[in-house]
């Protein structure tokens, strides 16, 4: 089986959206950097080109900005080495970022987007049910995977193991 070639798709993408930057990473995947306003169009384009499998969506906190990373690949039965593409939207504000949701295209990303909202505070416009998912609904402490997150809840006293509690012999 020949490795699946996605270069034609990426070239077509480059032709259709000249603003996107496509680079092959040293670790084997393709980075597709897009601007926020082209994000949804690019994902739609990729979906039409056969990138049918939603692997994951997440974000990275670069301390001064957030970066949204969407991982997709082609699930073609009988293919081999289907490369992963990462659609990246850089430069999102660290507070109140708003991104169009891709859940209508890939229903499997529903919960992953919710988790990204939960952990990074990125709001997904058009998401059917954008609530916190892992943390409680009434959590007020912020978004924990941000680098400057600190737990503001009162500290519980550390349990001290007393020396005399250990029975000798």
């Amino acid at each position: 089986m020949e490795p699946l070639d996605i270069r034609p798709d990426l070239e077509a993408l480059k032709a259709a959206y000249p603003a996107v930057e496509i680079a092959e990473a040293a670790t084997g995947h393709f980075d597709i950097r897009v601007s926020l306003d082209q994000y949804l169009d690019v994902v739609k384009f990729l979906k039409d080109r056969g990138f049918n499998y939603p692997a994951c969506i997440t974000a990275i906190d670069w301390k001064d900005r957030l970066e949204l990373v969407l991982q997709l690949y082609k699930l073609v039965v009988g293919s081999r080495q289907s490369p992963l593409v990462m659609v990246r939207v850089d430069g999102l504000p660290r507070e109140g970022a708003e991104v169009p949701s891709v859940t209508p295209l890939y229903p499997g990303l529903n919960w992953h987007e919710r988790e990204t909202y939960d952990m990074y505070g990125i709001r997904f416009q058009g998401h059917p049910d954008l609530r916190r998912i892992l943390l409680p609904d009434n959590w007020q402490g912020g978004h924990p995977l941000l680098k400057d997150f600190e737990d503001k809840r009162p500290r519980r006293p550390r349990l001290v193991r007393h020396r005399d509690m250990i029975v000798s012999g």
Binding site: G28, H29, A55, C56, T58, V69, Q71, L84, M86
Partner: peptide
């Protein structure tokens, strides 16, 4: 950056 797709017991484990 790396993303690994791994066939875990229950399905695709992805490590980003």
């Amino acid at each position: 950056e790396v993303y690994i797709r791994y066939e875990g017991s229950r399905g695709e484990v992805g490590v980003h």
